[in-house]
Amino acid sequence: MTATLRVSNLSKTYGSGDHAVHAVRNVTFESDAGSFITVVGPSGSGKTTLLAMVGALLQPTEGVIELDGRDVSRLSGRQQAQFRREGVGYVFQSNNLIPYLTARENLLLMRTISGKNGREGRERAEQLLDELGLTSRADAVATELSGGERQRVAIARALMNDPRVVLVDEPTASLDSERGKQVVESLVREVKGRNKLGIMVTHDMAMAEMTDRILEMRDGEMTERNRPSIPDASA
């Protein structure tokens, strides 16, 4: 399935009048499935707010977000939850696995909340655990996993429901640079290999350089960042 994301004139403003804070201002960009974008910028630049709007965690003040031609910027609360279950996969900054569940159970949770328990889900969980090198750790409780293992489980969880877009928030924040690099490599490989669209927010340029395209946020505004070369991350 080709996932085309089109973001048009997107803005998010908190408060009003003199106290208004323009977190995101008039952002426009497009991307196709099979690509991985990184949004970089300093703290408070609006990159996480942008990610939250694309992932239906926040409603924009203005503008449109279209995924496969469907406007997802004005969904009701229930529609947002369904979109987050089926259309989006999240990898959070601190992995945020359910601590008392095993790696396998964290993956199967995605099926449970979608009401899709069954053999197909279990097979998919085993396949993802295998592809991310986690089979031997499948029965380990989340708190027993290392930081890198937890992030790989988080990646597998994000892919569990076969979403069109994978949104990644500072995935290497709690990892050393070597483990961080491995995690981003896994991310880019798994997302592009499955013909998904990946969007990662980070302030780590070394990690950003591993993706196809870098967008920079500053004071809520977006600019395309020129790069000397684009590595073939799917190789």
């Binding site: 939850a81 979109f83 987050r84 279950r85 359910i98 909340i113």
Partner: peptide, 16 residues
Amino acid sequence: IVQIGVMKAIGASGLF
């Protein structure tokens, strides 16, 4: 609270 937020973020309903 954070765990509930994560579950909601990945699509779990409040009822669930």
